[in-house]
Design a protein around this nucleic acid. Structure first.
Lengths: 257, 257
DNA sequence: GCAGTTAGTTTACATCATTCACCAATGTGA
DNA sequence: TCACATTGGTGAATGATGTAAACTAACTGC
């Protein structure tokens, strides 16, 4: 949040210009109001007029701050990405503190926090990870602040994964057993991150993300209700399988084994 | 499609009533028009006025056929569910014909068809499997034709799975190793299907669905673009792992191994 | 032929995003 | 200090939306 608000501010000693005193504070206020409406009344209620009304303003005033509704929503999404990234980072920090830096604890804590946050923020999750709105894609064609914040989110997991790999390497699929086309893509992705680890490890990382996403999004979207009311045990099994995949021991809690 | 249109029709010999000649034909036409607009211009363009315009009518006329916009969209979704169920069923049939009924071919064909259909029908996929619209949930509270068609879709996979289990049983997690709470839910789900198979097999079924959904929806929504342009190889690896899980051999094609 | 139903229409209202013209304060340079 | 530009708004207008109500033309069965 802060980094966005003070993005325009100069050095600490300077007297803040009018732009920084007024405008910077208000963009955040707008985004927070939008967020509040999103949470309270759902994505359909997220209209410029509603936001403006809640702020005691008129809708056209918002155009001083954002180019369009889609632009505004895009910045809200970006904020949410940095929020969840921060949340997960904090959870990792707490796990590290209470476990003496144990890798398993940190990874499990990150995944648990991802699920907890997602279930506690269903409308936000839908915005970040649900069906992409075509208008939004078109609106944020150029500056794409979303992609940057999404990367920050992804790197929260990736740096943890890299940490794991460097300190407790685990067996991964050898390059020769990875499909040629996929190999090239994995290499490109790895290079874009500037990381040094075998393609098989990059593969495992994406593999884990696919499974984590699938499990959580099915639960958040309620697309598992046809069979399950509570997907928590299923999530735990997923976690223990992912842990096994990276050579870590994790036994799901068994409340009524 | 047909079963929906002729739902009101009497026996074949009877003279069709006016209701059946006109109204029944038109509900389908409305839904098809809506579908066309959805595909051509995206979900945001799916307005009652647009549909009516395309049909040479006025928007309020549509209220003769559907209670609201959400109601209409709900029925469109239901239609799409039965369509994809039919598509997958057909793919299974073709695979059975060309392979002499081999289980692996049938299952792989079903999964491939699910992915192919999803990639070829992104807007529809978003409607069926994306973030649920809260208004829609509220609108279809009672009659819920969606749930019925979604069940038809699920049972396409489930009957195939049941077929596999009955003819080629595979090792599954014993009941004692399944979390108590999850066990109860699995039992309830199994009973609702009227099927006879161990809870571990039901577990495996859901497990496979979670992984299939996660892989496909990430690809369809483009949420894998941060790393991959083409997720096909990843899908193949997923498939081979799922096959192994149910005791079937499947080696992903290796175009450039 | 008449009553009732069906499938539409027109009209109306509230809400939406967006654009434009305008205005009041504020800050700035001369 | 005065003139002027910039900033952050307002209000009205446009054209789109979902939906409700009243109305109408055609068709049906008796």
């Amino acid at each position: 949040m802060a980094q966005l608000a003070s993005g325009h501010a100069g050095q600490p000693g300077e007297a803040p210009s009018r732009r920084d005193r007024v405008r910077a504070a208000t963009t955040d206020e707008i985004k927070l109001t939008a967020r509040r409406i999103l949470v309270a009344d759902g994505p359909d209620a997220l209209s410029l007029r509603a936001i403006a009304r809640e702020m005691g303003m008129t809708a056209p005033a918002l155009y001083r701050y954002f180019g369009s509704r889609e632009d505004l929503i895009g910045h809200v999404i970006a904020d949410i990405f940095t929020e969840i990234a921060g949340d997960i980072q904090a959870a990792i920090g707490r796990a590290a503190a209470t476990s003496g830096g144990d890798m398993t604890h940190k990874l499990v804590a990150a995944c648990h926090e991802f699920r907890r946050w997602s279930l506690d923020h269903r409308p936000e999750f839908g915005l970040l990870f649900g069906s992409p709105l075509p208008d939004l894609e078109a609106a944020l064609d150029g500056d794409d602040v979303i992609a940057a914040c999404a990367m920050k989110f992804a790197s929260t997991f990736f740096t943890l994964f890299l940490d794991l790999w460097q300190h407790h390497p685990f067996p991964v699929r050898p390059d020769s057993e990875i499909d040629q086309g996929l190999r090239d893509q994995l290499a490109r992705y790895r290079d874009s991150l500037g990381a040094e680890l075998p393609l098989g490890a990059v593969f495992t990382f994406l593999w884990c993300w696919v499974r984590l996403y699938g499990m959580v999004s099915l639960e958040v979207f309620g697309h598992l209700h046809f069979a399950l009311d509570d997907a928590a045990p299923m999530f735990e099994y997923t976690l223990s399988e992912l842990a096994a995949m990276v050579g870590l021991p994790y036994l799901p809690p068994a409340p009524g084994a």
